[in-house]
């Protein structure tokens, strides 16, 4: 059975009730893994609270950081500072130089582009080649597609069709996320898969983009963040047991002559 995931759920974290409702609805709609973007300087309590809500409805939570850097240098700075604190790092590419840097950096998991300004969608062949080598994925926010009005929606569908063809040709994984900010924009995975047919993603690939692809990213990153990870393919299998300290300390502490 597929483990469906929505790696871009955007509840208002300032309102715990709203967050709880959105997480419960995700669970009801059939998702088993969700990603919620958190501010870089988050409070530990926020994450703990989110994890508690998620465990109540039996859903897995992946912490996500959304970066919108202005320059490649800023991107590198943020990655160096925050990469190890989050399970997912997404980069919103607002300029071509940032898009190229993000695509070739292995620390970036998800590339996302503007849905309204098509001049800022830099996912072309060159970008796809870099992303393919660095195992980055391209993300499509379905709620944005739902909420757009007619001319913008038509232009976006046309662009997405072209981008999906490039991604398929160069083996760049695609992930479909909701990007939902409220309850009415949330849909079930199968509904999103049906909607993805509008930009020529076959049903089976769309279901993969909602399950296997996002789950693989989270699994890979969790392995990287674990203490046993050393390098790709190399991890610590077991650690030597420590000698019991009690017996040795007793010897040294016992007074001479006993």
């Amino acid at each position: 059975m597929r483990k469906f995931s929505d790696l871009h759920l955007r509840p208002s974290l300032a309102d715990p009730n709203h967050t709880k409702k959105m997480i419960s609805k995700s669970s009801k709609l059939g998702y088993r893994l969700i990603g919620i973007p958190v501010q870089p300087r988050f409070k530990r309590d926020t994450i703990q609270e989110l994890r508690r809500i998620c465990s109540d409805v039996k859903i897995d939570l992946a912490t996500r950081l959304d970066l919108t850097p202005d320059t490649p240098h800023e991107l590198l700075l943020h990655l160096r500072r925050f990469r190890r604190r989050f399970e997912l790092v997404s980069v919103r590419c607002e300029s071509k130089s940032v898009a190229r840097q993000a695509a070739k950096d292995r620390r970036v998991d998800i590339l996302s582009f503007s849905a309204t300004n098509l001049r800022k969608r830099f996912f072309d062949r060159a970008e796809a080649e870099l992303a393919s080598k660095a195992l980055s994925t391209i993300e499509v926010d379905m709620a944005t597609l739902l909420l757009l009005k007619r001319p913008s929606k038509i232009r976006l569908l046309s662009r997405l069709r072209r981008e999906m063809a490039i991604a398929k040709k160069l083996d760049v994984p695609v992930i479909l996320s909701s990007g939902a900010k409220d309850l009415h924009a949330m849909r079930s995975p199968k509904d999103y898969a049906a909607l993805a047919a509008l930009f020529d993603i076959p049903q089976e690939s769309a279901l993969c983009a909602l399950s296997e692809n996002p789950v693989a990213i989270v699994k890979r990153n969790r392995e990287k963040l674990s203490e046993d990870y050393i390098a790709p393919g190399i991890r610590i299998a077991s650690r030597p047991r420590k000698e019991p300290i009690v017996s040795t300390s007793k010897k040294t502490l016992s007074p001479p002559g006993n």
Partner: peptide, 17 residues
């Protein structure tokens, strides 16, 4: 796909699942 794309009914935010 059409049912998924419905975001409002009579001008009020709605969804059909």
């Amino acid at each position: 796909a059409s049912i998924t794309s419905i975001i409002e009914i009579n001008g009020k935010p709605s969804a059909i699942h």
